[in-house]
Amino acid sequence: MTARILIVAEHDGAKLNPSTAKCVTCARAIDVADISVAVCAVDAAAVAAQAAQLAGVNHVLRVENPANEHALAAVLAPQIAALAAPYSHVFGPSTTFGKDLMARISGLLDAPQVSDIMAVESATRFQRPIYAGNAILTVEVAAGAKVVGTVRTASFQAAPDGGSAPIEKASLDVAIPQHTRFVSVSAGRSDRPDLQTAARVISGGRALGSAEGFKILYALADKLGAAVGASRAAVDAGYAPNEMQVGQTGKIIAPQLYVAIGISGAIQHLTGIKDARTIVAINKDGEAPIFEVADIGLVGDLFQIIPEIERLL
């Protein structure tokens, strides 16, 4: 049986999130006859046009409903479930959007979900991290079962542009539940690059000492055009907001350059960065576990080193 894969697009109403292009790459690793991308929105035209350009995408479905203004899992899941019949696989990104939504779809379809797919061995066999990345499980989905999957975005490159898939409107007759209502979102947005997609990321740990101490990171990040992250210890200490957290309990990222400053390298942090191309560690403790994974290490006082680096750039 050749696979037919439906991918649920992540977007903000105007722009397609790069996580979707990574799901396409994951889907293309399977012997696949069709890759369709579903864009759920009030007006999906702009995002659908972006999805249609991704190389490897065969169809884009506009799934439009006034209820789709905010990406609520309870609202989107029945619409995707209604589209799923012709597909062998339904994929979404392993972001908070996808993790929340895909498992609900799995429940509606009574189809098993493979969480955090990091490698594809066949249409039914996948690798995924367990125990916070301390073990890799190869799992085989039972024959005949529809496969729901969340794709670990750090494990796949984004599919390039170059496609021109036809865009169709999906007409669905689905009851939309009223029991879940969006109230607000407080986006601690800055004009810095997005942590999950930035090519360069600079993260700080508890050694920064305070929210004030983090400011030297922001200065360096701005000079490098980098996103800023934080260790769980720094977030727990209140030095940085949680959406900056990098690690198993925060964001799992794969930048070209990751600079860990004053981060000792707890296993849960390392899990979040091990797909980074180059890891740089700056820490005053030469025995810190971060140096075991760092490509370039520097032992010293970060409050002296950071301004020096900034001057040298």
Binding site: P129, A135, I136, T138, V139, L298, I305, L312
Partner: peptide
């Protein structure tokens, strides 16, 4: 029901050990 059969477990791949530099200038 068993629909997700574990096939094998592996330890994660380790990163190669890197180099140490002595100051900011060497790092840059």
């Amino acid at each position: 029901r068993v629909q997700l059969k574990p096939v094998s477990f592996q330890a994660p791949a380790n990163r190669k050990k890197g180099v140490m530099v002595k100051d900011a200038a060497e790092l840059v």
